[in-house]
Design a protein around this nucleic acid. Structure first.
Lengths: 157, 157
DNA sequence: TTTGCATGGTTGTATAATACAACTATATTT
DNA sequence: AAATATAGTTGTATTATACAACCATGCAAA
């Protein structure tokens, strides 16, 4: 009986396993820097870039259920890193912005992360770097497109 | 005040966010096929390939603490998909092998997964496929190398 | 050979992440 | 005005997971 997948799928499986291993840090409960988890930094960073953001936008970014978003955001508000205001256009919605403290912490964690990113960069051949990053973007996009139809990876909205 | 990372790090951050999003399926508690979660399939598949495996080898594969491995493996034994035997060379160690049922389920889930993988494959340009997969392998390797020194992503042993 | 340390694994306990369902309040459509 | 949809929160339950303590066996050094 054939219990193995074909080579091509074995290759893909190995890549998924690898991705699962290296993204473990992203879902680790322990704060990796300045008392902020990776998930929380994702929120801070997204808001730093967009200046302000609604909670509904975060669901997609974090790929979690909306109640989970609330619970990830709350501690950041309690720590005074985020401030929430009513959105002008829609009084149901909450707009999140960084406080001064939030900006400071975001910067500190960015530095901490920069050290890690630098190490990663040092471990890939410099001449191939743009192609490698582009390849990963393509791959991630491919998974997102495929996942929509598959319950195993259905994208949450 | 500069709260943004430089472009290069922003690029990497986006990639980590993307990876975090698409690997969500790998840690979803819900079984995606045949009552088996992705994590559990990782175990079945690894054993299918190596024929037999010790629990200690699984810690690294799954990148989890050893007690977690025990708890991931147990339900598979209870469902009769895995059998454990004492290792010959070391009577402390447990050797895991697939049962007939385990092989059957492994194959079924493989098929289910193959459908997903096929969709992914269809979403990447065929001529670039080998380079893309290779690029990802390099990237994953780079992260693993870097992570060793960084508490944020320290590899568990 | 005995003593002490290392290794493979399990179990107790606690916590974090997370989903789902039910709910409130506001918008939008009919 | 009524029905439906959307933004967000809270109650509740479950899963994943770690850490520490533990047992048993193996190995190395005294």
């Amino acid at each position: 009986m054939q219990t193995r997948m074909n080579n091509q799928n074995t290759e893909l499986m190995e890549i998924f396993v690898g991705m699962s291993q290296v993204t473990r840090c992203c879902r680790q409960d322990v704060a990796f820097c300045e008392g902020v988890t990776f998930h929380q930094f994702m929120i801070l960073d997204a808001i730093a870039i967009k200046k302000e953001m609604q909670i509904s936008e975060l669901h997609k970014l974090l790929a979690v259920e909306k109640s989970t978003t609330t619970r990830l955001v709350n501690p950041l508000i309690q720590k005074g890193l985020l401030k929430r205001e009513k959105a002008q256009h829609d009084s149901r919605a909450a707009t999140l912005i960084l406080t001064a403290d939030g900006k400071k912490i975001h910067q500190k964690v960015s530095l901490c992360l920069a050290g890690f990113f630098q190490k990663v960069t040092q471990n890939i051949p410099q001449d191939k770097k743009p192609q490698i990053l582009e390849a990963i973007r393509i791959f991630i996009g491919a998974i997102k497109n495929s996942a929509a139809d598959y319950s195993c990876c259905k994208s949450r909205v």
